[in-house]
Design a protein around this nucleic acid. Structure first.
Length: 126
DNA sequence: AAGGTGACCCTAT
DNA sequence: CATAGGGCCACCT
């Protein structure tokens, strides 16, 4: 079990129709303050990925992180998010308060939560 | 086995 | 809003 494996394990939990930030994934993987590492790990994901919903990870500003190094996979990411019904705001950014993933066990107001084993299916659309 | 190599985040100006 | 700077490593040659 490598460090990256722990990161991938968290990403696998992100349900369809929601997004998580790099920093959020890092913290959930037990790597607080190492958001950058998540980016490094996701860069190494070999596409098409059958089991890692890599596209559901965006930056803290609600944007898909663009980079020439990504060889166009950033555009694919935006498309996959749109396909899941995630809409952009007028400013082009994704509203994290609306689509941000609230992992099981987070305090989000007065409501309770059940420890549901969240294993989202992942359609190999790539 | 040492160095190159990347999808980040926060605070301050 | 743009820019800067400091903090952040593990993986793969």
């Amino acid at each position: 079990m490598t460090t990256y494996d722990r990161i991938y394990a968290v990403v696998r939990q992100i349900p369809p129709g929601t997004v998580a930030t790099y920093g959020q994934v890092a913290a959930l993987a037990g790597l607080p303050g190492r958001a950058r590492l998540v980016g490094y790990a996701l860069f190494r994901v070999t596409l098409p990925s059958t089991d890692i919903p890599w596209h559901r990870v965006i930056n803290a500003k609600g944007e898909v992180s663009h980079s020439p190094q990504r060889r166009g996979t950033d555009h694919i990411q935006a498309q996959l998010l749109a396909d899941e019904g995630i809409e952009r705001e007028a400013n082009g950014r994704i509203n994290l308060r609306r689509y941000g993933w609230t992992p099981p066990g987070e305090k989000t107001g007065p409501s309770e939560e059940s420890a549901t084993e969240c294993i989202p299916f992942w359609k190999p659309s790539l």
